[in-house]
Design a protein around this nucleic acid. Sequence first.
DNA 1: TTAAGTGCAAAATCTTTGCAAATGT
DNA 2: ACATTTGCAAAGATTTTGCACTTAA
Lengths: 146, 146
Amino acid sequence: MEKQEDKLAELLVQNGLKRTLPRLKVLDILSKRDSATSQPFLEKVMGSDADRVTLYRILQTFEEKGIIHKVLDGQGTANYALCTTGCSQHEHHDEHLHFNCRNCQRVYCLDAVRIPRIKTPPGFSVENISLTAVGLCSYCSDNKSE
Amino acid sequence: MEKQEDKLAELLVQNGLKRTLPRLKVLDILSKRDSATSQPFLEKVMGSDADRVTLYRILQTFEEKGIIHKVLDGQGTANYALCTTGCSQHEHHDEHLHFNCRNCQRVYCLDAVRIPRIKTPPGFSVENISLTAVGLCSYCSDNKSE
DNA sequence: TTAAGTGCAAAATCTTTGCAAATGT
DNA sequence: ACATTTGCAAAGATTTTGCACTTAA
């Protein structure tokens, strides 16, 4: 059976990207999280494994290639998550509910909740749509008494 | 019949805010637009009628009082729109589709399109939800040939 | 070997903070 | 007169750009 690590490296090769340490580490971090990860958090976890500027560039490249996608949380901070299969450089499929916890700031991709089809007024052509909820996630509602 | 101008000034008084020139101008600008207005745009239009810092503070105060609400566009830039009646310091009602034109960057509040009720997975309690579409608005699709 | 990728320094933005002067009531 | 609000200066934070050095293929 193929190792997870190899799958991630393969993602790079498939997209014509070199297999570098900073890139592999970003993929490793993202693959182990159950929610989208913010730029600041990534920066912290990367530590000295990548310069801040390098991280910006990696995230940008990955997004362009369709390896990750960006979700903005309630404060407008960028959060990143690995794309599911079906995303490519030209087409992102990310049409599910994003849940942003106001306590821990995590952004969950709730694939189970699809965005309902909506009818836009004439003249407005929708190319992309996102549904984002803000509230308390399970962990935070359990561990908080307000 | 009461003048529009007075209505705006009244908004300030009702919220215990002083009727200052910069504040009136912000209200005036917002009241004349059919879409939410970005911070950068406001800054430009205000010109020398308010310092950049003053604008930040006005927008923050207005948002806290429930006079305006903030909508983030696809890039995470803050856009502001006057609240409809029914918003207060403690409760914002803004649950309609926001349409962000990728060409002119305008953010339209499409009150006609309400956010469908959705069922969140157990453990996630939703306090606020937003639906944002990105695409081309009527003006831009008419005036562009791509 | 050599194109792609990284790290560092520095610029450009964007946002916040502190405080004295100005303003509305 | 007095609490609010503003403007300016300066600090912080975030993001971008340029370029020489390093590294994967």
